[in-house]
């Protein structure tokens, strides 16, 4: 589904991504983790070209996303992206946030788009907030709306960039619950997250990044039992302590 080949990325003098390769198959849930500044957020942003890369190739659903002929906007319709800061549009209601893309891009009639949006809101448990404005939502509710907004385009892949980091602790679980359900339905997902509990129970594979390099690319079981990698051990101890 997603293939990375020798991906390189520089920010000026900073070498942010170093020769990153790997594969994520259909229906797989991959968690990217690692210490801050390791390049995991940059990596996930390259997958839908919010960041351009300097070298290598990225192929999503059989499509080289840096090909000149690519219609970038049409490609992005097929890839959902959830931000750490939600980035809901504050001047639009919850329903309008969700229906904006289907109506503007797919020319879906209003009634149909809203019907689907309400179903999605059901799934994230927020039907009663349909006509509310983003400013009146809590962080957890905002993030669930943001997920619904991405799902409205029926994406083939969902990318999550630290979806729970900006939330108060008591709201983290409601967002993770939605994500878990999504995984169980067979969605291909890439998540940057520090939620190791989620990684253990939901993820198929875990990529461990450090200083712009993929240090380890293991199945979930292997990762959590790999007591022999000192860096992973140090990271886990750190994450464990902070939670």
């Amino acid at each position: 589904m997603i293939t990375l080949e020798h991906v390189e990325k520089h920010f000026g003098a900073l070498h942010a991504l170093k020769d990153i390769s790997g594969q994520i198959v259909q229906g797989e849930v991959a968690v990217l983790c690692g210490p801050s500044g390791s390049g995991k957020s940059t990596l996930i942003r390259t997958i839908n070209r919010l960041e351009e890369i300097d070298g290598g190739r990225i192929i999503v659903a059989g499509q080289d996303i840096h090909e000149k002929s690519l219609d970038l906007n049409a490609f992005r319709e097929r890839v959902g992206f959830v931000f750490q800061q939600f980035n809901l549009f504050p001047h639009l209601s919850v329903l309008d946030n969700i229906t904006l893309a289907p109506r503007k891009l797919r020319k879906v009639p209003k009634a149909e788009a809203e019907e689907k949006a309400l179903l999605l809101l059901d799934r994230v448990g927020l039907r009663e907030k349909a006509s509310a404005f983003p400013t009146s939502l809590s962080g957890g509710q905002s993030q669930r709306v943001a997920i619904a907004r991405s799902l409205a385009m029926s994406p083939e892949v969902m990318l999550f960039d630290e979806p729970t980091s900006a939330l108060d602790p008591e709201m983290v679980s409601e967002v993770l619950a939605v994500m878990t359900e999504l995984a169980q339905e067979g969605m291909t997902m890439v998540c940057v997250t520090h939620e190791m509990g989620f990684a253990r129970s939901v993820a198929d594979t875990v990529w461990f990044l450090e200083a712009g390099r993929v240090e380890a690319q293991l199945s979930s079981e292997e990762f959590f039992e790999s007591g022999n990698n000192p860096r992973i051990r140090a990271f886990m101890a750190h994450v464990g302590r902070s939670q």
Binding site: L50, N73, R76, E77, F81, Q85, N87, F89, L100, R149
Partner: peptide
Amino acid sequence: PRGQSEAARALGLPESVTMFTIILPQALY
């Protein structure tokens, strides 16, 4: 916030739609 135009791009909205439905209404308000 930069996230506004990023979120619009991530949804696949073209630049003109982003400008007229996301950026300008908020900026003018």
